[in-house]
Design a binder for these strands. Structure first.
Lengths: 189, 189, 189, 189
DNA sequence: GCTTAAGCGAGACGGTACGTCTGGTCTTACT
DNA sequence: AGTAAGACCAGACGTACCGTCTCGCTTAAGC
C-alpha cells in the first residue's frame, strides 16, 4: 500500500524535541505568561518559523509537551480498599498539581482556557485528568454502588482538590485527603 | 476632629467609574486576553497614566470591578431543607460562572492566577467564593453533623461545579445539581 | 499719582528667582534638551502652573535667566589700538561661548531658534550679541573707515567665531584670533 | 573571492528610502521639533522598530537624508575673478540656508548639535559646509596670497552669512554679499 | 548526479501593547 | 488672585513580542 510521497526535506525530529524541551524548562524557570514564542525558539536554538509551522500557540506546544508526563504521574496502583484507592489517587493528584512540572503546565493551560476558548477546546480534547480518574472510579464502582455518572463522577473526585490548589490555599495533607475520601465513599455507598 | 489635608487635585470619581465600567464592557465584548491597558484607557476616555496611577494591572481593575457584583449574585435565601439549600446555591453558582459578566470576570481572574502569583494573592484576598459558600454551610450545619472544616467544606461544595465549568463541559442541569446536593448531604450526615 | 491697584496676591519674587536659578543650574547639569518644564518646577520647588503662568516655554525662561549675564560678560574695555580692541572682544566672545553658563544658554537658544520660529523671534528680540559688538565697532570706526553697515558689521566680527564654536571645532587661540582681527582691520581700512 | 554570508532576511531598501523620504517631507511640512520617530515611521509606512534598528535618533536620519543634497547644492562653477567666485559661493550658501530643504535640515542639525553633543559629533563628521567652501578657497588662493589656514578660512568665508541667517535677520542681497566678498578679498590679499 | 520541493536557522518586516515620561490644563486648600 | 500640590487627558518615548516574509543552506525523493 502506497504512502504519500514525502516531498522535500522531512521534519526535523531534533527541532521538535528541542522545542518541547525548551517549553518544559521555560515553564519552570519563568512561568507561563513570561514565556513567548520568540523566547521558546531562541531557547530551543530553532528558527521562529519552525515553531509557528508546527504549533500555532504556546498552549499547543505545552499540551504536547506535558500530555504524556501528566498521564504517567496520575497512573494508579490497584488497591483493594476503596477509600485507600481514592486517597492514593487524591494524594497523587495533589502532588501532580502542586509539585510536578507537568502539573504546573496543566494549571497554566486550565488558566489560559478561561481566557481563550480555542485553548479551552484544546485542553478539553487532551483530557488529561479524566482517564486516570475514571480508572480509579472503575475500580471503586464494584464496592460502591452510588458512584454517579460521568461528568459528576470525575468532578466530585477531582474538583475539590483542584479548586483548593487553584485558589492558592496550602495543599491538603494526606490525612485531610483521607477524610475527604471517606466522605466521598459515604456519598457513593 | 481634624482630617488630613487633601493636597492637590482630588481623585476624579468620574474617571474611576469610567474605567471600571470600561473593563466590565470590554470583558464581555472582547474577552480577558484581548483586553489591554491601552484599550481600557481609550474606552474609558481616560489618560493612560490615570489607569496606571490607580491600578497596576488589568487584573486589579477587574477585581475591583466585579467584587461587589459577585457577592450579590451568590447571595442565598434561607431554606429549611438542607438539600434544597445546597441545590439552590449550586444552581446560583453555576448560573454565576456560566452566564454572568461578574462570573466571567471571576473565571478570568482564577485563570490568570495560574499564570501570575501576584494575581493569585489578589484573588485569594478578594475571596469571592468562600463567604457565600460559608453562609450556606452555616445554615446546613445544624442538620448535618459531618460538614467538614473550612478548606474542604467550601471545596467540596463548589469544587465539582467549578471544575466542570472550567473544563468547558456543558453546565450541569438543576436535576444533576440536586442529585449532587443529595450526595453531599449523605457524605456530611 | 495713583498706580493701578494690584488685585489679589502679588507675584511672588521668591518663585520667580527660584525658577531662573533652577534653569541656570539645570542647563549646566543636564543640558538644554533634558531640561523640562516639570523638572524646572520641581527643582525650583514651585508649582507647575506658576511656571506656565509667567513663561510659555523653557526658552523664554532661559532668555530671562541669561540676558543680563550675557551682556556683562561681553562688556569691553576701551582700547586705543583697533586690532587690540577687536582681539580683546573676540577672546571674550570665545570665552563666553565655550566656557560660560550664559554662553551655553545662548548656544542652546540659537540652536532652538532653528527649530522653532517663535524662539527665533525671541532670541532676535533679546539681541544679546549685537550691542557689545556694536560698542567695539563704534570704538573702531574712528580709525577704520571701511567698517560696513549694521547687519554685516556684527556678522563679520562675530560670525566666524560663532561658526567655529557651533560646529564643535576646538576653540581658537588668542593668537589665531589676533590674526583674524588683523585681517578684519585690513578689510575695513 | 568569498563574500560574507548574509544571514537572515536582508535589509529592505524600500523601507530605507521610504524613511529618508518621509524625513525630508516632514521637515518641510511640520519642522524639526514637531517631527517624531513615531510620525516618521507612520509617514514612511514602516514599523517603528525598523526606524530604531537603523537610526538611533531623528538627527541621524536627517544627516543621511540631506548629506548628498547639501553637497550638490553648494557645488560651484569655476570663475576667473576671485571676488566673483566668492560672491557666487556666498549667494549659493545663502540660497541653500534659507530656501532649500537640505539647508533647512542643515540648520536644524546645527541647532540640535547645540543641545546634544552626540549630534554635534555627527554633524562635524558629515562635514557638509567645509568641502564646498574649501573648493572655492582653493581656486581663490592663486590670486590672493593671504587666505588663512583651515579653521579660519572656512569660518571667515561662511560664518558671517551663517550667523545672519541663524539669527533670523533678513537674508542678505547679492549686492551686500558682493561687498562682503570684496572685503574678504581685501583682507586676504 | 541533477532537479525539485520542503524544512531549516537567521533575522528584518509592519504592527501594536507595554509602562514611563512630559506637555499643558484643571481643581483643590491655603495665603 | 497668586501659590504648591497633584490629578487630569493626550500622546511620544524606546522596548518587546506578534506573526509573516525573505534570504542561503540543507536534506531528502525522483528522475
Amino acid at each position: 500500500m502506497a504512502e504519500f510521497a514525502a516531498l522535500g526535506r522531512p521534519r526535523s525530529e531534533t527541532a521538535r524535541v528541542a522545542v518541547l524541551r525548551a517549553v518544559d524548562d521555560l515553564l519552570v524557570e519563568i512561568g507561563y505568561s513570561a514565556m513567548t514564542m520568540k523566547g521558546i525558539a531562541e531557547r530551543a536554538g530553532v528558527g521562529r518559523q519552525t515553531v509557528y509551522r508546527w504549533w500555532p500557540t504556546k498552549a499547543h506546544i505545552l499540551v504536547e509537551a506535558c500530555a504524556d508526563d501528566a498521564r504517567g504521574e496520575l497512573a494508579f496502583v490497584v488497591r483493594d480498599d476503596p477509600v485507600g484507592a481514592i486517597t492514593d489517587f487524591l494524594v497523587a493528584l495533589t502532588e501532580f498539581l502542586t509539585a510536578s512540572p507537568a502539573g504546573a503546565a496543566y494549571r497554566a493551560l486550565l488558566g489560559e482556557a478561561q481566557h481563550d476558548a480555542e485553548v479551552g477546546r484544546l485542553v478539553a480534547a487532551a483530557d488529561l485528568l479524566a482517564p486516570p480518574a475514571r480508572a480509579v472510579l472503575g475500580q471503586v464502582r464494584g464496592r460502591l454502588r452510588g458512584v454517579p455518572a460521568d461528568p459528576f463522577a470525575v468532578a466530585e473526585l477531582c474538583g475539590p482538590v483542584v479548586l483548593i490548589v487553584m485558589t492558592g490555599a496550602t495543599p491538603p495533607s494526606r490525612l485531610a485527603l483521607r477524610a475527604h475520601a471517606r466522605r466521598l465513599a459515604a456519598a457513593w455507598s
